[in-house]
Simulated scan of single mutants.
Amino acid sequence: MPPSPITIRTASVSDAPALLSIYAPYVERTAITFEYTVPTLEDFRSRISRTLARYPYLVAECSGIAMGYAYASAFHPRAAYDWSAEVSIYVSEDARGTGIGTRLYGALEDILKQQNIINVNACIAYPNPGSISFHEKLGYRTVGHFTKCGYKLGKWWDMIWMEKILGDHPDVPGRLIPYPELGNGCIPS
């Protein structure tokens, strides 16, 4: 991977074909996602659009080619959980180990802090030493382990939750600021 600089920007529905091509191998050949069927292009566009109504959805590019993406979603839909988010990341097979994932998560976490989100959680199929090591390197720690809760590719998989605290838990937290309200320029360079 590239001598060219990596650009991180907000994804749009027009990125769906490129991002779906990154995601499809994870669905088809791994238990990293528990989906069995690759989503349709229209479904993927809808996922991006729904996410962006409240949370960041970022894409990392090199020379105009999408190399990975990361996004946040509600940890739980009830209002008391507004200060927690689930994070997800997918990097193209040929861009793993290049630092793109670290850059994506760094930008994502910076935006989540601006939104007043304090706890970030990652749901990870287990075993998955690469993802666990990646998250540990970024300061996540395992906070939950569920046994044989997913079945894919002819075997049972455990699932773990890893968590990172982005800041202090104030007595009265600021309101969750939806991503669109942050305006342009919220992605750190």
Rank of each mutant, 00 (worst) to 15 (best):
T37P: 06
N128E: 06
I111Y: 03
P2K: 13
Y57Q: 04
I22D: 00
D43A: 14
E93C: 09
P129H: 08
D110L: 06
F75G: 01
P170E: 15
N121W: 01
G174V: 05
I124D: 01
S49Y: 07
R141Y: 10
G64D: 05
S14G: 14
I111S: 06
L176H: 07
W83I: 04
Y23T: 05
I111G: 01
G106E: 13
G185H: 12
P77D: 07
Y140A: 05
V172K: 14
Y81V: 05
V59K: 04
W157S: 07
I187R: 01
A95I: 01
V143D: 14
Y140V: 02
G183Q: 10
M67W: 05
I65S: 13
M159N: 13
R29S: 11
R50H: 13
R103G: 06
E35M: 00
G167S: 14
E86V: 04
K113H: 02
R47N: 12
K113F: 07
D110R: 09
Q115G: 06
F134S: 08
T7E: 15
I89Q: 06
P25L: 10
I89P: 00
P173F: 06
A95C: 07
L41R: 06
A80G: 13
A107C: 13
R103H: 11
T30M: 02
A66T: 08
N184T: 14
A80F: 09
A53I: 10
V143N: 12
I100Q: 07
S49Q: 12
P2D: 11
D168Y: 10
W157G: 03
D82I: 11
T30C: 11
D110H: 14
N184G: 14
Y151K: 15
G183D: 08
V91Q: 00
Y179D: 10
S21F: 04
R45M: 12
I89Y: 07
M67T: 15
I177C: 05
A72C: 04
T98K: 09
H169R: 12
L112Y: 00
Y23F: 02
Y81D: 04
R45V: 06
V27H: 05
